[in-house]
Design a protein around this nucleic acid. Structure first.
Length: 592
RNA sequence: GGUCGCGUAGCUCAGUUGGAUAGAGCAACUCACUUCUAAUGAGUAGGUCAAAGGUUCGAAUCCUUUCGCGAUCACCA
């Protein structure tokens, strides 16, 4: 039983004794810094049950609690707030109970619990990954780790959009202008090479439009009748018909892209348990449409197209099958969702990490799956996130106004190197170790910068003003971790001694309180699909520690028990930093 | 136009199920490194929580309206 539950129980008991009234709940908050106390009972809500002066009721409750709860040492009442001072021994006991628990705050999945599948990344294979993908990847990976830590089994997945007109554009441009270039022959990363031809296609396409317009064609008509676009569309049809030459080219160029992506993912530190390819799934869903018609979920129009009427739910009618019988995006997504549950039988819910421009699509998708009667449909969540904008506006691949993921990681690492070398604390460190460290810090800065913001909000990324390394940043937190490691390296004796009784320094108590919040923070972050909650928690913990570090001597403490206890607290803070940063996909350095 | 999201200090962001005087960082200004790593700490200044109503003992938080920004409303993906 934790202290809050105990006090709640005693407040109810006290209320019954004092006023012969039963109250259902008790409201708490952490006592504000400017008042004496640790936990505060808010008296106002109790006035519903017992009319009277809140200060007087608080006083009576305070008296009752201090006489009947041994852990409560003192109390004071300010307006309608009853502040309770908890005995140091309680905090010491609590600390001892978590000190050696290396998975403190993390839950282990229960035997028969359903798994959650988290989809993220899901790129098109016609161009390299950019900053928008980076946000997607970091969010998806982190949310997956958080859900895992909250006690659920997780599968990370992505659906690779490897077919369609976009890749045909790159293929065609390469065929026309590529002169047989390969990643080997050019030394270019495969995804970059393919991306170049996507841009090349667009340039040629625009040129042809201009030509047609100059010959008197209307702009609208020109856009749909350029020879190069027609040829790309023909290529897509040939691919769908399984024409050997096209399929071979498609395989070759996609492989270049996969090789390139693999490097980016590895550098970014994200991974997947299961991959899906759109070329395998794009025909799925059609059979479900027929079933849906029988169930009355869908209906057919005279032209043969199939629709779902969602007007009762405040939405529109949505097409799920074209009049020529071919699938639309929605059809595929319905089919793919069903396929996933077939593939992995213990999946009981899914999280889709996709930008907020598709909010409507997912609203419709989830509703349709519910209407089709799947029991897992109630556990679907669209992890919707805001776009990453540049000062110049939106990023556009075709116009080359993108922040490339690989370049960005290199720049961040470079910045970390410059700052580190200026500070010059790394003498005697091996060159290899140093480079590893620069990457840890650079990526830590980038990841924290992106993840600390609520997913729903848009991010404005200014490449010129770059990412901070001071204040509420990844490196600030990493620095604190490294500082603690430095202290621990200097300890020459066994500090595992369990301290039973001690007068706590205020800063020590604050740290223990903050540590105690970790488990509920993990749960809260999972329930809200929000790495930002973890980031903010960690920042608060670290700020608290730095204040402690600056104000209280650890290794210089004369009293042996106090010294041991301070080392233990420091160690635990470092452990929790490491744990919570692992949930964000950020590494921590031993020194920096 | 309909729907959805967002709007908090000059800038970037926190703010739990409504609770005490709305908090951090950056930038500005003070101070603290012969002392456990100053990528730090202690402090000063900076606010009509977009606006107006409403609910409540109590509203940045809930409801309504208005304004601003963004997204979306394809037999595209």
């Amino acid at each position: 039983m934790n202290i809050q539950n105990l006090i709640a129980f005693k407040v109810k008991e006290g209320f019954l004794r004092l006023y012969q009234i039963e109250i259902p709940t008790v409201e708490f908050q952490a006592t504000r810094k400017e008042f004496e106390g640790d936990i505060t009972v808010v008296v106002f809500p109790l006035l519903k049950y017992k009319k009277g002066n809140p200060a007087e009721i608080g006083e009576n409750l305070g008296k009752y609690l201090s006489e009947n709860v041994p852990e409560i040492k003192k109390y004071n009442v300010v307006q309608g707030f009853l502040n309770l001072v908890i005995d140091d021994v309680f905090y010491i006991n609590f600390f001892n109970s978590i000190f050696t628990n290396s998975t403190f705050g993390f839950e282990i999945p229960k035997e028969n619990d359903k798994a959650i599948m988290v989809e993220y990344s899901s790129p098109n294979t016609n161009k390299p990954l950019h900053l928008g993908h980076v946000r997607n990847n970091l969010l998806g990976f982190s949310v997956a780790e958080i859900i895992k830590a909250s006690g659920k089994k997780v599968y990370k997945t992505q659906i690779i959009n490897d077919r369609g007109i976009h890749i045909c554009k790159s293929m065609l441009a390469w065929k026309l202008f590529g002169n047989g270039e390969t990643p080997q022959s050019t030394g270019l990363k495969g995804d970059k090479l393919v991306g170049n031809y996507y841009v090349k296609f667009d340039q040629e396409y625009k040129k042809q439009i201009a030509e047609l317009i100059s010959k008197g064609t209307s702009e609208e008509e020109a856009k749909t009748t350029t020879p190069i676009l027609s040829e790309a569309q023909q290529m897509l049809r040939n691919w769908e018909n399984g024409e050997e030459e096209v399929v071979a080219l498609w395989k070759k160029m996609n492989q270049w892209v996969y090789d390139g992506f693999e490097v980016t993912y590895k550098n970014l530190g994200v991974d997947f348990d299961k991959l899906y390819y759109e070329s395998d799934t794009y025909l799925l869903g059609k059979d479900v449409i027929a079933e849906g018609i029988e169930k009355g979920v869908f209906y057919k129009k005279e032209d043969g197209s199939v629709w779902c009427d969602l007007t009762d739910e405040g939405l529109d009618e949505k097409i799920v099958l074209r009049s020529d019988g071919t699938a639309v995006y929605m059809t595929q997504d319905i089919g793919t969702a069903i396929q996933r549950v077939k593939d992995l039988k213990d999946v009981g819910g899914m999280v889709y990490t996709v930008g907020n421009e598709q909010d409507y699509h997912f609203q419709v998708l989830f509703l349709i799956l519910k209407k089709l009667g799947f029991d897992w449909a109630k556990n679907l969540f669209h992890l919707s996130y805001g776009m990453v904008d540049l000062p110049s506006g939106k990023m556009k691949s075709r116009e080359g106004t993108v922040v490339d993921a690989d370049d960005l990681m290199i720049e961040m690492t470079e910045t970390a190197k410059i700052i580190s070398e200026e500070l010059g604390k790394l003498e005697g460190y091996l060159e290899v170790k140093k480079n590893e460290l620069f990457k840890t810090i650079g990526l830590g800065a980038l990841k924290y910068f992106i993840l600390k913001v609520d997913p729903k909000k848009r991010i404005l990324f200014d490449p010129k003003s770059s990412v901070d390394f001071q204040g509420n940043t990844g490196p600030f937190i990493q620095y604190t971790y490294a500082r603690i490691q430095s202290i621990i390296r200097k300890v020459t004796f066994d500090y595992s001694l369990e301290i039973k009784e001690l007068e706590l320094h205020e800063k020590e108590k604050d740290l223990i309180k903050q540590l105690a919040l970790f488990p509920e923070t993990v749960q809260q972050a999972a329930a809200n699909y929000s790495p930002a909650i973890i980031a903010n928690y960690t920042y608060d913990l670290v700020k608290e520690f730095n204040s402690f570090y600056q104000n209280v001597s650890i290794l210089g403490e004369e009293n042996h028990e106090k010294k041991v206890f301070r080392i233990q607290i420091s160690k635990k803070v470092a452990d929790v930093i490491k744990q919570s940063f692992s949930l964000l996909g950020i590494n921590v350095p031993e020194r920096m």
